[in-house]
Design a protein around this nucleic acid. Structure first.
Length: 272
DNA sequence: CTGTTAACCTGAGTGC
DNA sequence: TGCACTCAGGTTAACA
């Protein structure tokens, strides 16, 4: 489900929620493991005060007043929702942040998500953050950087764009959408991508991710925000999940092929 | 080292 | 209805 725009949407909503009331009275689990075992020490903590809600790549980081941080990754099907205190919980509601005014419930049917705790001040030093590339909406993601990185690689450019060590936040939906708007064929070898095309890719990456954030992300089957509202960027998809349908520009049939283990969509006419 | 595939899970959709 | 099968937004261990 969640790529950068969806995670950023959740971050902004959680930020507002914790601005209204920063205190988590207690944390409870309804099972002890997602993709990884969750930290049992958190269950003993009372009154966690959330100071900031950050995002790095597709991770949410909730920093606290005592300097530790909660780490949350949504995996494929993870969602955070604000529900009334004492609400009935479903079989896939695994984590509850119990607050005075509401419960924040983490639901994740496939359990590919992560819920973790980083000790004081060093969340960025966790192994899971070390290999990550630049944020796509930061000054570090330039055409020159992309060009140099792509030159080192032999994979299809679409696979490279999804590699979180090259640039973070781009997943399977947005990789196809970005390359469509940039006019670049996803199967093109990374080494053969010109600097001019890198300019297009960087520009369209920033444009699409920004638009998608504005629209609250893409709601495919089960993504929604903390308040339960769906995003609407799925209505802007030009190629993703449109195999056999006409290209929005030239009406050529959209093609699909597996690249890097994921379905990849493109227009053979518009993308060279 | 690089690059590719399989595995982790459940649910939704499809075809018979 | 029911069953078998495929596929799904991510990440990473295991493999070639």
């Amino acid at each position: 489900m969640p790529e950068l725009p969806e995670v950023e949407t959740v971050r902004r909503e959680l930020e507002q929620i914790f601005l209204q009331d920063p205190v988590i009275e207690k944390v409870s689990y309804r099972r002890k493991d997602l993709r990884e075992v969750m930290p049992l020490s958190l269950l003993l903590v009372r009154k966690l005060k959330i100071t900031r809600v950050l995002r790095r790549a597709k991770y949410l980081i909730l920093t606290t007043a005592n300097h530790g941080a909660l780490i949350s990754h949504l995996g494929m099907t993870g969602t955070w929702r604000s529900v009334p205190v004492g609400s009935d919980l479903g079989p896939h509601d695994h984590v509850v942040l119990e607050r005075k005014r509401d419960w924040l419930v983490f639901r994740d049917p496939r359990r590919f998500g992560i819920f973790d705790w980083a000790e004081a001040g060093d969340w960025e030093d966790q192994v899971r953050f070390r290999h990550l590339g630049p944020e796509p909406l930061s000054a570090g993601f330039t055409p020159e950087y992309l060009f140099q990185e792509l030159k080192k690689r032999k994979t299809a450019v679409k696979v490279a764009l999804m590699d979180q060590a090259l640039v973070v936040g781009v997943g399977n939906i947005y990789a196809s959408e970005i390359l469509f708007r940039a006019g670049v064929k996803p199967g093109l070898s990374s080494r053969k991508v010109s600097l001019a095309k890198c300019v297009q890719i960087v520009e369209k990456t920033q444009e699409i991710l920004s638009q998608a954030i504005t629209l609250g992300g893409s709601s495919m089957s089960d993504f929604y925000g903390v308040s339960g509202v769906e995003g609407s960027f799925q209505n802007q998809h030009s190629v993703y999940d449109r195999s056999g349908e006409p290209c929005v520009i030239c009406a050529t049939r959209i093609r699909v092929r597996v690249m890097g283990g994921r379905s990849t969509y493109w227009c053979p006419q518009c993308q060279k």
